Amino acid sequence: MQRVNMIMAESPGLITICLLGYLLSAECTVFLDHENANKILNRPKRYNSGKLEEFVQGNLERECMEEKCSFEEAREVFENTERTTEFWKQYVDGDQCESNPCLNGGSCKDDINSYECWCPFGFEGKNCELDVTCNIKNGRCEQFCKNSADNKVVCSCTEGYRLAENQKSCEPAVPFPCGRVSVSQTSKLTRAETVFPDVDYVNSTEAETILDNITQSTQSFNDFTRVVGGEDAKPGQFPWQVVLNGKVDAFCGGSIVNEKWIVTAAHCVETGVKITVVAGEHNIEETEHTEQKRNVIRIIPHHNYNAAINKYNHDIALLELDEPLVLNSYVTPICIADKEYTNIFLKFGSGYVSGWGRVFHKGRSALVLQYLRVPLVDRATCLRSTKFTIYNNMFCAGFHEGGRDSCQGDSGGPHVTEVEGTSFLTGIISWGEECAMKGKYGIYTKVSRYVNWIKEKTKLT
């Protein structure tokens, strides 16, 4: 034993070699072989497995989906700052455009905790909710729209109204504003409101030439003092309507412009014939205590009207009353817009006519005020429907199939267009061939041609 100890002390290297040989010859039971080890760690190889990531292109799944990435790591994937920024906006807080917040056709661009709407022409605001041009839906104005110097929408209202708090709607500024039905039992019968379409306001006024200088022999019209197929109006439903009495009662109609003036057809009036105007009328054979009678003290036909040349060209006249009318729910003026808007309103496509005229061709006159909704007829169809001249200051309205029309005794009465609950004068009943005849239409004086003249002559002093 002493000898062994001496050998170990003198030859430590020998001992180490012996131990190493023993270990190498022993069977290893701690580690699995290569094949079995792979069965336990069965993990798919990654895209760049075996390579240094710093030297390969980034992978979106590896960089940002398996674990949260930084902007720089995302930049490695896209290799483009702009594309990385677009991805980053949604990656950080989701897609803010998912709810489609942009209105009126706006395009949404996502941002971090926010979004941006790219608005089409005519709109602005956070969600493109603000109209900035009158060309689109009248700028959301209830009545009139004008573009300011910086191309912003400025709404306005006709006389007797003021802008509401929203700067879009119009509200009454006087007790009985024009064009409004205020009798409670008839307010439910107000005709369907007309909503502004998209309009090209630059070209809204037709490029028409008034044929002022045409000389033409007097034409022989049949029954051209021209509501057939209409309905009984309720008291106060058309408070701007008046009836004219002269040699015979209810020979023509008219509309209240203001307390002192009536507008009617020029062919209705004769110099030297006494005319009485009755406002607030409903049943011409009954006294309903809503009527107001006034005498006409002055007749002003349009300066281009000449019955000797043509009885229905420039067929418009103004009547001055001896005493002002007292405005109330049964006696209310009709609204008159400017030339541009009167023309736009007419193009809405349908209007209402009213009167006490004959209820059928050569038949009896109506006792109760009649009204009828009539569609506008395109000019080409209008011209083809008659052998008589249709001037540019006239328009056609009615039904091709016949059966409904204005008729004798309705002449001078109103053709009105309702705009968001307020009625505007767009025409004056003038003439036609018979009444409600198939293929024939009622012919009306186009008020847009005469609004400046009306307003100039009827100013209240």
Rank of each mutant, 00 (worst) to 15 (best):
F238C: 04
W88H: 15
Q237V: 08
Q2I: 08
V202A: 13
T158D: 03
G432S: 11
N80W: 03
E73C: 03
Q237R: 06
D212V: 10
E27H: 08
G351Q: 03
N127I: 05
T16H: 09
V4D: 07
T186D: 12
W261C: 02
R379D: 08
L372P: 03
P324Y: 04
I210G: 13
R449E: 13
C178A: 00
E86R: 15
V447C: 03
I309C: 06
I256K: 01
D111L: 10
G442K: 07
K234I: 10
S184H: 11
N310Y: 05
G442D: 03
N295Y: 07
E340P: 08
Q241N: 09
I275P: 05
V419D: 00
R294P: 00
R43V: 15
C335K: 00
H289Y: 06
Y391W: 11
S255Y: 02
H361C: 05
S448I: 01
G351T: 02
Y312R: 10
H267L: 02
V195L: 12
N5M: 11
V153I: 09
K137M: 11
T194G: 12
G229F: 14
I299F: 08
P101K: 03
F348N: 14
E72L: 15
E193R: 07
I344S: 14
C18Q: 04
E165W: 07
E98H: 09
G253Q: 08
T158C: 05
N135S: 11
Q167A: 07
V296F: 01
H314P: 02
K126Y: 10
L52D: 08
H400V: 14
D95W: 05
T186Y: 09
G355E: 04
C155N: 00
V174N: 06
N127E: 04
P301D: 03
C335I: 00
A173G: 07
G236A: 07
G402E: 15
V181K: 07
Y444N: 00
T287A: 13
T290L: 06
V181Y: 08
E288P: 06
T342Y: 02
A366V: 06
P324R: 05
D232T: 13
T389G: 13
V202R: 12
E124K: 04
F238N: 03
P175K: 12
N283P: 04
D110W: 05
N310E: 06
P177A: 10
I15M: 10
K455Y: 05
Y115L: 01
S169D: 08
K446L: 03
V447S: 03
T209M: 12
Y161C: 00
F224P: 14
N343E: 15
G94H: 09
G402C: 07
M437T: 14
E171R: 07
Q90P: 11
S423A: 11
K45G: 14
D131N: 12
V228N: 06
L189Y: 11
T417C: 04
Q219Y: 07
G403R: 05
D410Y: 07
E208N: 11
T84D: 10
S204I: 05
E82M: 08
T458W: 01
N304L: 14
C145H: 01
T218D: 07
V153D: 03
G160W: 02
R384C: 03
W356R: 10
D223Q: 10
T271F: 08
S99I: 05
D249A: 09
D111H: 08
V377I: 14
A192E: 11
Q167M: 14
N258G: 03
M6W: 13
Q219R: 08
A9S: 12
R140Y: 07
M394F: 08
Q143S: 00
P197G: 09
P239L: 00
I284R: 13
T16Q: 08
E129R: 01
E288D: 10
P172L: 04
G403Q: 13
Y201E: 14
D378A: 13
V278S: 07
V228K: 10
C382P: 01
A307V: 08
N147F: 12
G246A: 09
S354W: 03
H415F: 13
N80P: 15
F196T: 09
A265Q: 03
R83F: 07
N147D: 13
N295H: 12
N245L: 08
H289M: 10
T16A: 11
I334S: 01
L20F: 11
G398F: 03
W431R: 10
D111A: 09
W88Y: 15
N295R: 12
A37T: 15
L41C: 04
E66W: 03
P120I: 06
D200A: 11
S184A: 12
P175C: 03
T287H: 06
Y371N: 09
G403T: 13
Y341M: 10
I256L: 04
L32A: 15
V257A: 03
S350C: 07
P44A: 12
M394H: 11
V331G: 01
R373G: 05
S184Y: 11
C252W: 01
K68D: 06
E35H: 06
I136F: 14
M394W: 07
L321K: 00
N222M: 11
F121I: 06
V183S: 11
V269F: 04
S329G: 13
V353W: 03
C268G: 01
K89C: 04
H34C: 04
G179W: 01
W88R: 15
R404N: 06
K137F: 08
N313G: 06
A397Y: 01
L425F: 02
Y444G: 02
V4P: 08
G122F: 03
I262C: 03
C335G: 01
G229K: 12
